[in-house]
Design a protein around this nucleic acid. Structure first.
Lengths: 217, 217
DNA sequence: ATCACTTAAAGTGTCGACAATCTTGCTACT
DNA sequence: AGTAGCAAGATTGTCGACACTTTAAGTGAT
């Protein structure tokens, strides 16, 4: 989150980012209809750019469109969350596996440093918004895979949906205490270039995270 | 391929399908530029529908767009193929795992029957286009996962890219002889409801397939 | 009162024109 | 001769208007 920022250049870009934010954060209610004309006046752009933005939201799986009918924000369901985490487990597992192969020594050192700073903040009891750290951790590993498909699928697509679920189902952040250990184990496996283990640990980390969420429903 | 057909309803739909076909089959050269005005006259629709079609192609990873510059068909590279197969391995592995859990007994029986008919055709030396069968096999397992994210990611996205590589790098179909055995093993694991094994075998099947392709480059 | 049909209203799909941006070739200057 | 700047052309981005489809209300008949 700290390194990589999407720069809007066209009006459709800014509208897309704005709409995505409003949907993910629940300002536009899940399951609600997206009227092109209505949004057009709200965001003060033509219907053409609204349409382009909606198309991109559909490609991000945040919105569903039916021809001649319109677009609706996806509705959240426990089943949907489970399916999402299954895909995430598969992709991030592969991400960790590839990261163990492809991350540079410097990148790994940075990653370890990041974890250290996190654990210190937590130990000192410093109130600190954990989600950002968790996101940062997962981002670095995905980026470390050096696989462009993986990167864009997760970062442009799945993570926004995950965040939408987290925000709207009111789970502030992931489990703080136990997650750190899991993160550490994953990083250690990567540092040891043990791809097999890195994948397994990352998959476990994600399934644990999902089970933790399931109990809260 | 026999069961599920995408029905175009708008002009943008038909244009999208047509363009995708032309790109996947190489009628539009990989790496070439997509001029909106040019395509507009070629397909006899307005630029608006061309733009929507191109947007969808971009979402399918078949096309890359730069703001104020235009869209290009993705260019094929060995690296790109490898990355694609890595993602495919992760997703289809998970697909097989879930299929072992979620396919109905009837669906499994149908799948076994499909394999039988294939092996008979091959044994009898009947010339027969193997790719369709392979695609059918993979489709059924993915659909058997019952995971909508997985299904749409693979069927609407990755498979078209895979086909593009296959067609344009001139690999008619996958390895006929050995692939059958691998298919059988996967199905047996699914029939035994052994999710773990099904995933492992499917992943191996895909990595073998990739290595087979690599030797041909 | 219910159901089928008609029709008006609202919304999406498509179009052509204008505005903004990038590209290319030329000019002028060092 | 090489380079920086400029101008003309071509291409993409955005807009408002029109066409078509869906939806829903309303009318009339059984």
């Amino acid at each position: 989150m700290t390194f990589f920022t999407e720069q809007p250049v066209t009006a459709a870009d800014t509208t897309f980012f704005q709409l995505r934010k409003d949907i993910v954060e629940g300002d536009i209610v899940a399951g609600s209809k997206l009227s092109e004309t209505q949004l057009s006046t709200k965001y003060e752009v033509s219907r053409a750019v609204i349409r382009e933005a909606i198309n991109r939201l559909e490609a991000s799986n945040l919105v569903e469109r039916k021809a001649n009918v319109g677009a609706r924000v996806v509705s959240l369901s426990p089943q949907g969350l489970i399916e999402l985490y299954q895909v995430r487990e598969a992709l991030e597992g592969m991400g960790a596996r590839l990261a163990a192969k492809n991350m540079s020594a410097d990148e790994i050192a940075d990653l370890q440093q990041l974890l250290d700073s996190h654990s210190k903040k937590v130990e000192s009891g410093e109130s600190y918004y954990q989600e950002a750290g968790d996101v940062d951790f997962h981002y670095r590993i995905i980026l470390g895979s050096k696989n462009q498909h993986l990167i864009s699928t997760l970062i442009d697509g799945i993570y926004h949906l995950v965040r939408m679920y987290r925000v709207q189902l009111g789970m502030a952040g992931p489990r703080v205490t136990t997650a750190f250990d899991e993160h550490k184990h994953v990083v250690r496996a990567i540092a040891n270039r043990d791809a097999e283990l890195a994948e397994m640990l990352m998959r476990r980390h994600i399934t644990y995270s999902m089970k933790n969420i399931e109990t809260k429903l």
